[in-house]
């Protein structure tokens, strides 16, 4: 089956300079306007870890997922899977067996005309598994995600609850025995008590099958619980990447800080008086110049609208893209140049 090629030190997924722009419908003939959905991101996913991707609508997190899944073709950039360049050393069909995805909408991601077992058995059948073996695998997987195959295998998606359907989708994603699973807001639509059950399941499956996750979510509490590292995205760019605890304890980007502060605390004694961030997330069609966050940023200075900050190491592999951290950037809070 799928072999571990480069050993544990080799990242499972390496994304370099990924760019995807969409043309805006009805834009002028002279100047074609584009949505800069993903505008140059680089990151690595280590073997066996869970990378969280957080950000608000329009930040490009779902587009990133679809680019990694090759459901969309990037304008530029490369994807390496276990050191192998996709499309060159690694063929798409071989790659697809190793990378799977679970979507947010548990209902839309199941074919309403197929029974649960047919949905799960579909992918193995495509890859040449016999009907009997594929059905057996579907039943074993149903069992594993906590659904009794005797009760559920022959039923249709609309007869299941949201939580049950999402379990089916997880089983379906595991049917090809992938190494990387992308969870795109996979628990966001579930009720809290069901969400907790599914999160526990995801943890167990990860251990059992040695999986690596990319977990895309807008819920920072869930990300903190589940993820080893986090990438914070803002308008198609990575604002900050690093270990979860580092980011949650010492956010290096003002946006991460504001995002964390915006989570409502379940304690009436800790009510906020001022929103941490004013304004709406801007439109990715015409992103602001310089640092894209500067119009909403509390630390913004004239320099922020002029030069775009690169991702800068803050310690370990904690990186943030903010001029206030960058010595010699011209920002008044920037540390003086190291001697």
């Amino acid at each position: 089956m799928s072999l571990d090629l480069g050993g544990p030190a080799q990242p499972l997924l390496t994304v370099q300079g990924l760019v995807k722009h969409f043309p805006v419908k009805g834009s002028g003939l002279m100047r074609r306007r584009v949505v800069r959905a993903v505008d140059g991101i680089d990151f690595k996913v280590k073997k066996g870890e869970t990378l969280g991707v957080v950000g608000e609508s329009g930040c490009g997190k779902s587009t990133t997922a679809r680019l990694i899944m090759k459901l969309l073709d990037p304008d530029s950039g490369t994807v390496l899977f276990d050191g192998q360049k996709l499309g060159h050393e690694l063929e798409l069909s071989a790659y697809r067996r190793q990378v799977q995805m679970v979507f947010q909408d548990s209902y839309a991601s199941l074919n309403p005309r197929l029974t649960i077992e047919e949905s799960i058995a579909f992918a193995p059948r495509i890859h040449g598994v016999t009907a009997r073996a594929a059905t057996e695998r579907a039943h074993a997987l149903l069992n594993r995600v906590g659904l009794d195959p005797g009760r559920f295998a022959g039923r249709y998606p609309h007869e299941l609850s949201g939580g049950q359907r999402q379990r089916v989708n997880i089983a379906r994603a595991l049917a090809l025995e992938p190494r990387l699973v992308i969870l795109d807001e996979a628990v966001s639509a579930l009720d809290k008590s069901v969400e907790a059950q599914v999160l526990n399941l995801l943890l167990d499956l990860k251990d059992e099958f040695g999986l690596t996750y990319i977990f895309i979510s807008h819920d920072l509490n869930v990300v903190r619980f589940l993820c080893d590292r986090v990438m914070v995205m803002y308008l198609g760019k990575a604002a900050e990447i690093g270990d979860t605890e580092a980011i949650y304890e010492r956010p290096g980007h003002p946006y991460s800080k504001a995002l964390l502060a915006s989570m409502p605390k379940a304690n009436p004694a800790e009510r906020m008086d001022e929103p941490p961030l004013a304004g709406d997330p801007p439109n990715p069609i015409d992103p602001p110049s310089g640092c894209r966050f500067h119009p909403r940023c509390a630390l913004a200075e004239p320099v922020c609208s002029q030069s775009e900050p690169p991702l800068l190491q803050l310690g370990g592999d904690h990186e943030a893209a903010c001029l206030a951290n960058m010595s010699g950037s011209g920002h008044s809070l920037a540390p003086s140049r190291a001697p």
Binding site: E56, P264, P275, P276
Partner: peptide, 8 residues
């Protein structure tokens, strides 16, 4: 709504 807008 997005988190930063929700709290607003």
């Amino acid at each position: 709504l997005d988190a930063t807008v929700q709290i607003q």
